[in-house]
């Protein structure tokens, strides 16, 4: 038992160093003024974490945007806080606590919505702020405020090896899940009633997707933090939606934007010595603005130009 754990651990260690080495060969192709920043081990860990987080956030954001779950994503990301605090208190892995409170909150939202006259937006606002407040209270009693700040806003430069491992495993699970359940997820997002009629269990798909969201949020905790992760769960998908009419292409663009924003944001945060989470989100927003203006079909600039040409 212990032996097999050790084997798994050393195997994933090797995998992570392999991935970092692969990333570094790409980075070293860049001008030395850029690649210089990535020569330290902590920067390399930060880089790999950012790439993974950018990729899975980008992937999930397609579903969040198309399913109109932006507010739900926001709710879950806040609801994760007390779980993280309790897990910290009990010495559990962050993910376990985060998943429990995240899932409880989303079930609570559903229950209020179904059984009372309160509408879904109020139910979400109510549940996630309460959950978040509980988290703030617990943490204020337990840990220093810097620790709280790191959870809220991320601290990618301080990512420890264990956190990178967690992000790595979470990413693999998320990618595998989306691949294996690609069709049910797509059908559920597009037309849940059709999914029902075809005999898919939409309850399972629904909560599976929430589980995936929670997983992604926890994996992103150290990089962009609880508050800003929701930006990474909306912006890449929304940007990709402006650029294509194919779901697979949308996934691809969204993942690319997620990765690019994470890496560029990380680099900028080091060069200008600003908060990494904020920098990453601002870069993603920059991509969105570019797409909004210059997208071939939806872009405002081309629309104006076409209108002028017509008139």
């Amino acid at each position: 038992m212990v032996d097999s754990m050790l084997i798994i651990e050393s195997f994933s260690d090797a995998l992570i160093s392999g991935l970092i080495a692969a990333l570094m060969t790409v980075v070293n192709l860049l001008p030395s003024s850029v690649s210089e920043a990535f020569q330290y081990a902590f920067m390399q860990r930060a880089l790999l974490t950012s790439v993974l987080v950018g990729a899975i956030c980008g992937m999930l954001s397609c579903y969040v945007v198309l399913k109109r779950w932006s507010l739900l994503g926001d709710a879950i990301s806040h609801a994760v806080l007390p779980g993280v605090a309790i897990a910290y208190l009990l010495g559990w892995p962050f993910f376990v606590g985060a998943f429990i409170t995240g899932a409880l909150t989303s079930v609570g939202i559903g229950a209020i919505e179904r059984n009372t006259r309160i509408k879904s937006d109020a139910a979400m606002g109510l549940m996630f702020t309460a959950s978040f407040a509980l988290g703030v209270v617990i943490i204020s009693k337990l840990a220093s405020s810097t620790h709280l700040m790191h959870i809220l806003f991320g601290n990618v430069l301080g990512v420890r090896h264990s956190a990178l491992m967690l992000t790595f495993v979470a990413s693999i699970i998320a990618i595998l899940a989306v691949w294996l359940a690609y069709r049910p997820l797509l059908l559920y997002a597009f037309d849940p009633q059709q999914a029902q009629a075809l005999g898919f269990n939409t309850q399972v798909i629904h909560y599976g997707l929430i589980l995936l969201l929670t997983l992604t949020i926890v994996a992103s905790l150290e990089t962009v933090g609880i508050i800003l992760v929701v930006a990474m769960l909306i912006t890449p998908g929304a940007t990709a939606h402006l650029l294509t009419d194919r779901f697979k292409t949308m996934l691809l663009i969204s993942v690319s934007i997620g990765i690019c924003s994470a890496v560029i944001g990380l680099w900028l945060s080091v060069v200008f010595n600003v908060a990494s989470g904020g920098a990453i989100v601002l870069v993603a927003f920059g991509f969105f603005i570019m797409a909004l203006l210059f997208s071939p079909k939806q872009g405002l600039v081309l629309q104006q130009w076409r209108r002028r040409k017509m008139g």
Partner: peptide, 30 residues
């Protein structure tokens, strides 16, 4: 997969990024 259902037009999100082919293929998912 023996019950096929055709929804009203309003029930579908027409902005969804899928092609005609992909949409019809949805009928095969079951």
């Amino acid at each position: 997969g023996q019950i096929a259902y055709m929804a009203q037009r309003e029930a579908i999100e027409w902005d969804f990024p899928v092609s005609v082919w992909d949409t019809v293929m949805g009928g095969r998912y079951g």
